[in-house]
Computed example of a mutant assay.
Amino acid sequence: MPLKPVRASLLINLHARRGAELIEQAESLLRARGLDLEAVHAVRSPEQAETLMRRDLVRGVERLIVGGGDGTLSHAAGVLAGTGAVMGVLPLGSGNTWARSLGLPLDLEGAAGVVAQGEQTRVDVGVVNGRVFLNSVALGVSAALAGSLDRQTKRRLGLLAWPLRGVGVLRGHRPLYLRVRTAERTFELRTHQLVISNGRYVAGPIKAAPDASAQDARLEVFALGGAELPSFVRATLDWLRGRHPTSALTEYLETREVRVENLSRRPAQVSVDGEVGLQPPLEVRVWPRALWTMVPPGFRADQA
């Protein structure tokens, strides 16, 4: 008996770094691999994307393929988590952090092959103040940096935009005074950077922790250094080397839920999958195995 055709749709964010130039190629590659796309959407805003995806779900679409950067994928996951529909990922952004956590090829042809002919699995998502996220929630330097980068700069420079702009942001950054509460412990600290991670990767190719994965039903929470900038720099270097879980310069813990309060006298910028907007207090939790997604055959979340 022939297999029942998969009801699929494709949504591409035209503002993603490579979205506008690759939409026709993406459609052609998917159709060539046997997917009969019921709809192809070109969008310019998260709100438009969410509306069209909900419409596709009502129509009975089973596999929603999303092309864009991490912000686009994060909003898509907010629509699809808990529905049973399957998300396919085409990495068209600058860092493509979530694609790395899924072990996907970062080229369009390779990713299209996985989306059309790979395996289905369930992965964790995070939830912060009611909003779903995929990669991480961050306070401090990286949030200030995310807020300083416009779409054109990220499109032109890609991952290079972060270190090039980061030097200027770091010079004027002041430490945050935060209270962190989990079921296991409560502590206060002054730091330039706090990260709460769901996936294996946090920013492009930088891992949350050596054994982190998108299927471990936990969040990695870590503060890099103290109030002095040199300690932040040294702790960040430990992080890049994968040493931060045991570093004396880093507060590190694993948990299922965490609350973060800002005790500073000034607002604390928060980035969620690279998008700035929220303010503390933050209630963050992991939602285990909430999202169905396409992954390469033999996918291991802790080895992606």
Results as ranks from 00 to 15, higher is better:
Val125Pro: 00
Leu106Arg: 02
Gly126Tyr: 00
Gly84Asn: 03
Lys154Ile: 10
His244Trp: 02
Trp287Gly: 14
Asp56Trp: 04
Ser148Thr: 09
Ser271Arg: 07
Glu254Lys: 12
Thr191Trp: 03
Ile196Lys: 00
Ala76Phe: 08
Val125Thr: 11
Val221Tyr: 07
Leu278His: 07
Arg156Gly: 11
Leu194Met: 05
Phe299Trp: 14
Arg171Thr: 15
Pro175Phe: 00
Leu149Val: 07
Ile206Val: 15
Trp292Glu: 12
Val127Lys: 14
Gln215Lys: 08
Val115Arg: 07
Ser197Asn: 12
Ala39Trp: 11
Glu251Tyr: 13
Gly130Ile: 06
Ser45Arg: 09
Leu224Val: 11
Asp211Gln: 13
Leu278Glu: 08
Glu254Ser: 13
Ser148Phe: 08
Val272Ile: 10
Leu159Tyr: 13
Ser9Lys: 10
Arg44Pro: 05
Arg266Gly: 09
Leu164Val: 14
Asp216Glu: 03
Asp36Tyr: 13
Gly172His: 11
Gln279Arg: 15
Leu73His: 09
Phe299Ser: 09
Leu102Pro: 00
Thr83Ala: 01
Gly67Phe: 01
Thr121Cys: 15
Gly126Leu: 00
Asp211Gly: 05
Leu237Pro: 01
Ala144Arg: 15
Glu275Leu: 10
Val169Trp: 10
Arg200Gln: 12
Pro91Lys: 01
Ala304Lys: 02
Pro175Arg: 00
Val79Asn: 04
Asn262Phe: 04
Ala49Glu: 08
His41Asp: 11
Arg218Lys: 12
Glu119Pro: 06
Ala116Val: 07
Arg17Ile: 10
Arg31Phe: 09
Trp292Ser: 14
Val286Tyr: 00
Val272Ser: 02
Arg100Ser: 00
Phe222Tyr: 14
Ala8Phe: 00
Ser9Gln: 11
Val180Thr: 03
Thr293Lys: 06
Leu11Asp: 03
Arg266Leu: 13
Leu224Glu: 05
Asn135Lys: 07
Gly34Ala: 04
Val202Ser: 04
Leu134Ala: 05
Glu283Ala: 14
Ile12Cys: 03
Glu109Asp: 14
Thr191Phe: 02
Leu139Glu: 07
Arg218Val: 03
Glu62Ile: 05
Gly34Asn: 06
Lys207Thr: 14
Ala111Glu: 05
Thr72Pro: 01
Ala227Ser: 13
